[in-house]
């Protein structure tokens, strides 16, 4: 543990239907991934949920696998990206 907080951005894109948020957050809770922020937007006509999560003490590949399972079941697209990508692109 370096003590440095590492965050990732999870985006869920697809056709809106009941249960998406519950499905994603349940899986994240099982893996002890803390959700720091959650918001919604419309992207190219698709419902998009954006979450900022703390991944400092979890194995990224395990979270990814869990999210892939949810994506498959809920028929949505889920992407998890390290926060540095957004820092580099949007902050000088």
């Amino acid at each position: 543990m370096t003590g440095k907080k590492e965050r990732a951005v999870i985006t869920v894109t697809g056709v809106d239907h009941p249960g998406i948020v519950a499905a994603v957050t349940t899986e994240l809770a099982k893996l002890s991934v803390n959700i720091e922020d959650i918001s919604q937007t419309i992207l190219q006509d698709f419902f998009t949920m954006i979450m900022i999560v703390d991944v400092s003490s979890v194995k990224r590949s395990e979270v990814q696998k869990a999210l892939d399972r949810v994506a498959d079941k809920q028929k949505v697209k889920i992407i998890m990206q390290h926060e540095d990508l957004f820092k580099y692109m949007h902050r000088v």
């Binding site: 965050r7 918001s39 937007t41 992207l43 190219q44 998009t48 900022i52 926060e83 990508l85």
Partner: peptide, 18 residues
Amino acid sequence: MQFSKEEIAETIKMISFE
């Protein structure tokens, strides 16, 4: 939030659609 949802959406749009 450190980034606005518009900024995050812009990045996702670039990767997923463009």
